[in-house]
Nucleic acid binder design. Structure first.
Length: 474
RNA sequence: GUCCCCAUCGACUAGCGGCCUAGGUCAUGGCCCUUUCAAGGCCAAAACGGGGGUUCGAAUCCCCCUGGGGACGCCA
């Protein structure tokens, strides 16, 4: 049988890293099993839906490379289907009409909570007489549909990650499957969809484990076998609380915009709560090959940005410079280094060279773009403390001499420049160490950077010589 | 309050009764390399939440406690 899984976000927020990991696990499982990965939007809550969030969620998945094979489906376009299935349950006596108003129910719920009791529907409408129904109707009440839930017994969830989890039926009440306005509730829509879409494995966030017995009851009422469930642990923030905006970046697109590579995020997310021996670095192909639900660690995991950055640098260092260079290009504009037109005009070879020279010093694409400010433009800021410390009259004089020698070096390449510089310095009774820092400050405005001669080669003859000669004016 | 889940270094994790004086990775500290900063190499520090069992033997199995998280909606 073909494996069919789904990722089912609701468009009430951006796709955050926790959701992305759930999507990733689904996707990996589907690819590994040669199954089908389905995307479905759970948008039955008309008030809280934000349609403008759908495209960013799609974009997040595309960026991560988690392409879906089917969908996206929208629950909001399937209300008729849910109503049909609900009415079947009603006619079979497995569901019944409830005339209680939301206000009445809310009141009871509050009272139960205040009395430190478990809020449960009291079953008031479970067996209404025709006369009572008539009265409610005449009061203008619109009924909701509730599932008739057995009062005793246990419901067992067989979870691929957690094992067998049992719930006592007495914990459950007759919950609503269809609202009074005819829209389905979450639990009902999910099961109808999972049944009609032929879902074989439900891989979803931990928080739904408590919903699972309710959903199993719906499968049973509908007369369909339950799929395999796998509840993946939550992703927490550094302070062990639920990840939220105040913890900094949490949305997938924020990481993209900060210069994180998709393969780094994928690798990081995959290793968060899942492992394969001592291996840390996984290509997507390896993940597909090695992923298994059984190896997913059952406890919640804390999102550690440091490790993500380490992985990001790893992929920056090992990726194709041409490709990384193109990814750097938009950051030239974003960081106000170049105008859009100027950024477009930079040869991709130049960007690739910058990548090769600077990638061991950058953890993000943004950091990788930063040196372009002094390589590609003259709009650089000099660190005044550094200038004061290193650009003494004596050093400035040396740099002047150096400029004279380097000016005619042909070709203007790192190796030739270094040879020329070293021999000139030797003739002056100096070493490279004597001018390295003054030279770096004169060229880049700062004390930390890549190799001097690689930097010169990238800046080009004109800029290099001009800056060396101008050192005294700083 | 009730129910459910979880529990190894600061973090991610290996471990599925003896291979554990508990391994790897990130972060941290030190040393080396070095024109700076990185990167890299080497080294160090760092954990089985507590208490009971079971067993010849427990990080591994069971129970209790504690701690953390989640759920209890005509939200998803």
């Amino acid at each position: 049988m073909t494996v069919r899984v789904r990722f089912a976000p609701s468009p009430t927020g951006e796709l955050h890293v926790g959701g992305a990991r759930t999507a990733l696990f689904n996707w990996l499982f589907a690819r590994k099993q040669r199954g089908v990965f389905i995307l479905r939007f759970e948008d039955t809550d008309i008030e809280r839906n934000r349609p403008e969030l759908i495209e960013p969620i799609l974009e997040s998945l595309r960026w991560l490379g988690l392409l879906w094979d089917e969908g996206p489906y929208f629950q909001s376009q399937r209300f008729g289907v849910y109503r049909e299935w609900a009415e079947r349950l009603l006619s079979e006596g497995k569901a019944y009409k409830c005339y209680c108003t939301p206000e009445e129910l809310e009141e009871k719920r509050k009272r139960a909570l205040a009395a430190q009791q478990k809020p449960k529907y009291d079953g008031r409408c479970r067996s209404l007489t025709a006369h009572e129904e008539q009265r409610f109707l005449s009061e203008g009440r619109q009924p909701a549909l509730r599932l008739r839930v057995p009062q005793s017994g246990t419901i067992a969830v067989e979870d691929a990650i957690r094992g067998r989890v049992e719930f006592d039926s007495s914990e459950l009440d007759d919950f609503i499957i269809l609202r009074s306005d005819g829209r389905p509730t979450y639990n009902f829509a999910v099961v109808v969809d999972d049944v009609t879409m032929g879902i074989t494995h439900v891989i979803r966030a931990d928080e739904h484990l408590n919903n699972t017995p309710k959903q199993i009851l719906i499968y049973q009422a509908l007369g369909y076998p339950v799929p395999v469930f796998a509840h993946v642990p939550m992703v927490l923030a550094k302070d062990r609380s639920k990840l939220s905006k105040r913890h900094g970046a949490t949305a997938v697109l924020e990481f993209r915009d900060r210069g994180i590579l998709p393969e780094a995020l994928v690798n990081y997310l995959a290793r968060l709560g899942w492992s394969h021996g001592d291996q840390e670095i996984f290509s997507t192909e390896e993940l597909i090959e090695k992923f298994s639900l059984e190896a997913v660690h059952p406890s919640a995991a804390i999102f550690d940005e440091e490790k993500l950055l380490w992985l990001n640098q790893h992929y920056l260092k090992t990726g194709d410079p041409k490709r990384i260079g193109e990814l750097v290009r938009p950051f030239l504009v974003k960081l106000n280094i170049l105008s859009e037109a100027e950024a477009d005009a930079v040869p991709s070879d130049t960007l690739a060279q910058i990548v090769v020279v600077f990638r061991e010093r950058a953890k993000t694409l943004a950091e990788l773009a930063e040196p372009a400010r002094y390589i590609l433009t003259d709009n650089l800021v000099y660190d005044s403390d550094a200038a004061q410390k290193f650009l003494t009259p004596e050093k400035v004089e040396l740099l002047r001499g150096l400029a004279g020698v380097l000016e005619s070096v042909e070709p203007f390449r790192a190796s030739a420049l270094e040879a020329a510089a070293r021999s000139y310095l030797e003739s002056q009774g100096k070493t490279l160490k004597d001018v390295a820092q003054p030279c770096r400050v004169a060229l880049t405005g700062r004390t930390a950077g890549a190799g001097l001669f690689e930097t010169m080669e990238l800046m080009g003859r004109e800029r290099t010589i001009a800056r060396l000669r101008r050192a005294g004016a700083l």
